[in-house]
């Protein structure tokens, strides 16, 4: 099971050094937990991120055969976004433009690695 407070704590630790928001979404794109200055923004990020991810995944499936989508880096006018999967959930980091893509990717990877094992165990329970 998820401890909402504990998850928030972990996400909070990642929301430093120019990262504006850290979100954890379920496979449908609803936020499970997030850290952000504004609730409204976070929900918008969540919607856009999950939409981009599912579009790429759907279209990429035909092209790349059995290789799944692993990571998305998006460079925007007002910031950079990194999206990756943790078991069957999505992890999304939104950073200011001065945060370089390399460090953002490294951070996202580190966080995903940290969350992977406990979430893996949880998904085995969800699937019947």
């Amino acid at each position: 099971m998820l401890k909402p407070k504990a998850i928030s704590q972990v996400l909070k630790q990642a929301t430093t050094g120019g990262v504006k928001a850290t979100l954890l979404l379920n496979s449908e794109g609803s936020p499970l937990a997030f850290i952000s200055d504004s609730d409204r923004d976070a929900r918008v990020y969540a919607a856009i991120a999950s939409n981009i991810w599912s579009t790429f995944e759907k279209n990429g499936k035909n092209l790349m055969r059995d290789d799944n989508l692993k990571f998305l880096l998006v460079e925007c006018e007002k910031g950079n976004v990194a999206i990756t999967t943790v078991s069957n959930m999505l992890l999304c980091l939104v950073a200011k433009p001065e945060v370089e893509l390399g460090i953002l990717k490294a951070k996202t990877d580190a966080l995903a690695r940290h969350l992977e094992e406990p979430f893996q165990r949880m998904t085995t329970y969800t699937q019947t």
Binding site: L2, P4, I7, S30, L32, Y125
Partner: peptide
């Protein structure tokens, strides 16, 4: 979040 609670119920 709602999704978190719903997931907990599922689990």
């Amino acid at each position: 979040e709602s999704a978190a609670t719903q997931m907990n119920i599922n689990v």
